[in-house]
Amino acid sequence: MEHRTDQERSDQLAALVVSHTRTVQAVLVRALRLEDRHLVDDFAQDVWLTAWQYLLRGNEITRPAGLLATMARHRVTDHYRLARVRREVATDPTAYGPLANAAAGARELVSA
């Protein structure tokens, strides 16, 4: 196995970004739901970070298009998998804590 410097890995990643950005974005656009297309740039950034970590572990990328497409699809899959178990709950910020006290004080002033 050939040992590369971080600069060589950085150069390799930069070359991948230049040559495969459109591929990564296209895979993400196809894999995401229509209402989630605004996430393409964020997910692309995650793919490049994953590729960088992959290179830092000493791995070689012999088929970059396939590897990056797989990373992109996995990122989308992880997003939807987490979305199934993570529920966002809307709350009234004035119902708890310091805002509740301020809201109660404001109601007293209005009613007086």
Results as ranks from 00 to 15, higher is better:
1 M>R: 09
4 R>D: 01
5 T>L: 10
7 Q>K: 13
10 S>C: 05
11 D>G: 14
14 A>L: 11
15 A>D: 07
16 L>Q: 05
18 V>M: 11
19 S>H: 13
22 R>H: 07
23 T>F: 06
24 V>M: 03
24 V>N: 03
25 Q>I: 12
27 V>T: 12
30 R>M: 12
30 R>A: 14
31 A>W: 01
32 L>Y: 00
32 L>W: 01
36 D>T: 08
40 V>M: 05
42 D>T: 06
45 Q>Y: 04
47 V>A: 03
49 L>H: 08
49 L>Q: 08
50 T>M: 08
53 Q>V: 15
53 Q>A: 14
53 Q>Y: 12
53 Q>F: 13
56 L>D: 11
60 E>T: 14
63 R>Q: 12
65 A>S: 12
65 A>E: 07
69 A>C: 06
71 M>N: 01
72 A>Q: 01
73 R>H: 06
74 H>S: 08
75 R>K: 13
76 V>G: 01
76 V>Y: 03
77 T>D: 08
77 T>V: 10
78 D>R: 04
78 D>T: 06
78 D>L: 04
81 R>K: 11
83 A>V: 10
84 R>Q: 13
84 R>L: 13
85 V>I: 14
86 R>Q: 11
87 R>W: 08
87 R>F: 08
89 V>H: 03
94 T>H: 07
95 A>D: 06
95 A>S: 13
95 A>E: 07
96 Y>V: 15
97 G>Q: 05
98 P>D: 15
100 A>N: 05
101 N>S: 14
102 A>T: 11
103 A>V: 06
104 A>H: 04
104 A>G: 00
106 A>T: 14
107 R>V: 12
108 E>F: 11
111 S>W: 10
112 A>Q: 07
112 A>N: 02
